[in-house]
Each structure stands twice: as C-alpha cells, then as structure tokens.
Design a protein around this nucleic acid. Structure first.
Lengths: 118, 118
DNA sequence: CCGTATCCCCGCTGATACTG
DNA sequence: CAGTATCAGCGGGGATACGG
C-alpha cells in the first residue's frame, strides 16, 4: 500500500503560546464548560445537562484534556453511587478573563454584522 | 446509492457571540495576521513573508473572511503594478486585547506544563 | 504581483451502544 | 451515574497549478 501523495500533513505553524491556549478554549464546548464550572463545581451529568446537546464522548474527552492541562480538577466523592465532581483550578480561573474578552468582541462582531445586513 | 446513515451532521451548539469571535481568531493563522497588521499595514506578499509557511489559499481565504467581518480593510493602491494593502479596522484593533489575553494565559499554560514534566 | 481553483489529508465532533 | 468504544461526516488547512 503505497501512499499516492506525501502531503506531509503540514508542519504545525504554531510555536506561540496562543495556539497553546486556543487548543483549550478552541474546543466547541470548552468555553461552556469553563463558564459553568466558573459558577460552581458540577458533576458530569449536571454539566451534560447544562450544555444541552453535548455527547458524553466529547464531554469526557474535553474534561480529560482539561484535567491534564491543569485547568479543571477531577474529584471523586466516596458516596454511593460514587459521584465525580469537576471544578476549576486557579489556572482555569485565569481563563475566564480571556473568554470574557473574546465574548466582548463577539458582541461587537454581531452588532457590526447586524448593522450591515440591515 | 442509498446513504446508509443520516447522522445529520450535528446541529451547531453555538448560539453565543463567543463562537462568532472564535470563528475569526480561531483560524490557524488569523492571530498572526492581526498581530502583524496591528504594527502597520501590509501587502499580501509582505504578510505571506511574515507568516512563514502559510499558503496563498489560506491567507487569501482568511483575509477575505476578515474583510467581510469588518476586521481588516482591503485597499487597492493605483500603482503599477497595482499593490493591495491590508490594514486593521477599528473593530480589528479591538481584537488585539482579546488576543493578548489569550496569549497571557497561553504562557501560564506553558509554564505549568513545563513544571509538570520536569 | 495578487490572488483563485482543485485535490487531498487529518482532526474534531456527533450518534449509538456498551461497560463498571 | 460515569464514562469508553466504534463508526461516520464535515470543515480547516496545505500543495500545486492556473487566471488577472
């Protein structure tokens, strides 16, 4: 089986910390996760209920990655049945201002777009 | 040829302005474009030279989208041969603080990661 | 010089079903 | 409840070739 083309998957152009951060908040649901976790710790199911429409796989994947990156903390509570609680770490809280800045510009963008179409 | 599965391509979960903005700065090269344009207006070739490795297609696509969104301004200068100059609009300048916020957190992320592996 | 068109690959995400 | 496994689809992005 010979690959017909090299197309070397393209070298990643990102050497800056920006990509590092976008890899975290760039996920489709990650901002929502940070947002809800920023209010109070939540369990897996609660999160899944808040983020209506998210699949368990994606939520699980995101949560795992965020935990590895030190953004969220995973705490297993010894209840019956065992519940798992997720919360924001200090580092995770630092993400909030960045997200808010993005949201703020997002509003500007929507306003501009709304003004143009009208 | 009957499609064996619908898999309705999944409804977009994004109704928030956050996605709106991420659609702009989320591009692989967009932050760099904003960054360089924030220093001074640049031509297509200059931009392509600054962002080493970017393909013309992607740069063109991004620039076009950014122009539509009102983030960059495309100015054709009646020289010979005609040169095209790109610059940041007011709205584009508002993107800079958001990007800086992201970069700031990105540094924290890298530090944390470096500390963990060590 | 300034792009656009075509082809291709990969990663993210969703749907569903299954395990502890 | 809290996930994991498998299958599949879309879109972003790179390479190259071509048009204005």
């Amino acid at each position: 089986m010979v690959p017909r083309r090299k197309n070397k998957v393209t070298p990643p152009p990102n050497t800056c910390p920006l990509r590092e951060c976008l890899g975290i908040i760039g996920g489709a649901w990650t901002p929502g996760i940070i947002w809800y976790l920023g209010h109070s710790p939540r369990t897996f199911s609660e999160l899944k209920g808040d983020l209506k429409g998210v699949s368990a796989k994606v939520l699980s994947t995101r949560l795992k990655k965020l935990a590895v990156d030190g953004v969220v903390l995973r705490t297993v509570k010894p209840t019956s049945p065992p519940t798992v609680e997720y919360s924001l770490t200090d580092l995770g809280c630092e993400l909030k201002p960045a997200i808010e800045a993005i949201v703020a510009v997002g509003h500007r963008l929507k306003d501009r777009r709304a003004g143009r179409v009208e």
